[in-house]
Design a protein around this nucleic acid. Structure first.
Lengths: 362, 362
DNA sequence: GTACAAAATGTGTGCGCACACACTATTTCA
DNA sequence: TGAAATAGTGTGTGCGCACACATTTTGTAC
């Protein structure tokens, strides 16, 4: 039998003090004489004490409240997966007897005021921690300031706000994402080909996001070692319902030597539908595994989707907060998710895998 | 305050029996009258009792021993990541006070006898559970039979043995993997192009694996809706050290209209090196993120790698066994990992992500 | 009816930790 | 000098569960 794990009790014996004193030293609760503290610290330096996290959660019988502030998935289906991820994290932790009360707040991703309003409510509810997708830069800054001042830890997801003093950001590198899109769209194409970048977004909440993706996309072709100097055209399209939308697409389709379309939002399916009968040779690269996109991917109308894995992102956010609150575990300030490439051939392997991750410890 | 989680104590009160009786019913320990059992079951049916898994591990003070039986990574670097994954799972569980003793057994992936020998030792050590990569079909069958008879649960990884009565198989769909390779290699190519499938393996331990991948690869081009009827040539190459190896590669390179090479093992870098100065237009698709492949990917010699994520697979294996032993959690018998596409542009996002997953609960 | 086994049930303890509280030694102040 | 405040200790309890053991009830034979 190997050396059993060291308990507080063991440390107490080794240091010649009581368990209570060790506890006070470990948690800086004060009320310890310098002499006793030194004795304990000496032991702690020599042995590698790892508290039993399981026992810890049993001991502290606190009920932490985590507030989430996410876009309403009724407005944008993309956020459904995030919501599910939060739920998954919640139930999983509950399984382990970790009683987290997660309070969901939703806001309209198209309305800044909706975010501000919800943020205010979240703050006034005084949660122990917050998970937030701060789509609106300027509206979120004062919110983060308040949280920081109130010492409420928070994790940002999806949208990175550098100035925010977040515990951690969970998301993707958008610039690289654009580069990847460029690589995929140009793979095997002629060097004199033209590409179109389409920003389809009813408003400009995502403008920073989209710009960053486009920057990466263009940068790829400007790289010195690239021989193909493809031409890149950018289009900003309005609401898909309008007649101008169709007209614009028709114009884009007429671009000479058009080899592919990069849709910077999750709306690639709209383009796919319009191009359906026109020209199969035009490659389409888009984002996110929402229903409509999946359909287009499977029938070959879309060639590549880049997956953000919002479900796992959100779940990780909840887990990270729990780790922080309950176990005082530190977190890397930046957690960038891999840029997952989804094609007609591997899409099924991604979909089936997601469900399997439900009830496992880590 | 919301309805607090239901404890055994609560069930006992509701059913009008003692905690001991509830415990006996829950665990089928017998010694319960039909009347009492019925009372308890009635309560259990109505409420949704979820045992506090954390408290459970504290209560049962058993020390489980898990044996692993994996190829030696000194013989094949691919298995290094699996080994690290096992270690990662181990330390993570230790953090939670779950005292698993993991006993590592390694075998020479090229020698069947080595596997048999190691398997025998593993069995005689009478572990509580086993995680094994059964590279050798016929050698593993009796091993699995023994384990089953001794009621020792085991999980197979990497190689699926249908006949084995494994708790779960963790790996990938190799047929789909071949299809994916075909998709990637043919993307944007002419329809009259030729492709070469290269099986580079010093011996034939992986033969089933490789055949399955090739089957998928070929099937892709035979699909009725595919217009391009590319020709596919298969080559089985011997040891890379031999002179015939180089000669064979030179011959392959001369194939008319050769559009790409699909290397079914992790040895794509060997091909990349040989083709380096010859012809940049030939696309190379291979497997696994080992050092040499990564180098080739980054300098553009390899176009695509399909990642098996052996580290996460192994870690999941350990976690799943722990879940099974400690929490009696059931497991899906098949856990197929997504087929991850790695390109020069997204490889860095995969590498950085791996490290971040160290200390999180799930 | 008693005697005694067997079945059924209830109670108690420990897992490792956090935290409240009781207790003792040391100061401080009247 | 004594009382009271304070700093420094140790002890005890509970978290929810598993499991050993004590206790009670039931069944069986005479």
């Amino acid at each position: 039998m190997q050396p059993k794990n060291i308990r507080i009790k063991d440390i107490a014996t080794l240091a010649g003090v009581s368990e209570g004193t060790v506890d006070r030293v470990l948690h800086n609760r004060g009320k310890v004489s310098e002499i006793a503290a030194k004795k304990v610290r000496r032991v702690l330096d020599e042995i590698n004490y790892k508290p039993n996290l399981i026992a810890r959660t049993l001991g502290t019988n606190r009920n932490y409240r985590i507030a989430t502030l996410m876009p309403d998935h009724k407005q944008d289906p993309y956020w459904k997966q995030s919501f599910d991820g939060i739920k998954a994290g919640e139930t999983q932790l509950a399984q382990f007897g970790i009683h987290l009360t997660v309070e969901h707040s939703l806001f309209d991703p198209h309305k800044k005021e909706s975010f501000q309003e919800a943020a205010l409510k979240v703050f006034h509810s005084r949660p122990d921690a917050v998970l937030v997708a701060p789509l609106f830069y300027y509206a979120s800054i004062p919110f983060f300031k308040e949280l920081s001042e109130a010492q409420i830890p928070f994790i940002t997801i999806n949208t990175r706000i550098q100035e925010a003093n977040a515990l951690s950001f969970i998301g993707q590198d958008l610039f690289k994402s654009g580069q990847l899109a460029a690589e995929l769209i140009s793979m095997g194409q002629n060097s004199n080909v033209a590409f179109a970048v389409l920003h389809i977004d009813e408003d400009l909440t995502n403008s920073v996001h989209l710009k960053e993706k486009e920057r990466g996309f263009r940068e790829y072709f400007e790289h010195p070692k690239m021989k193909s100097h493809a031409t890149v055209h950018t289009y900003v399209l309005g609401t898909p319902q309008s007649s101008t939308f169709r007209d614009q697409l028709t114009v884009i389709l007429k671009t000479p030597d058009l080899g592919g379309v990069f849709v910077s939002t999750s709306k690639a399916y709209l383009v796919a539908a319009a191009f359906k009968n026109e020209n199969a040779a035009i490659r389409i690269v888009g984002y996110d595994l929402i229903k409509q996109n999946l359909d287009c991917l499977q029938n070959g109308q879309i060639d590549f989707l880049i997956n953000q894995n919002p479900m796992r992102q959100a779940k990780l956010g909840i887990q990270t907060l729990a780790n922080n609150l309950l176990f005082q575990k530190s977190t890397p300030p930046l957690h960038l998710f891999p840029l997952e490439i989804i094609t007609p051939q591997n899409v099924s392997t991604y979909l089936s895998h997601a469900g399997n991750l439900s009830g496992i410890i880590v």
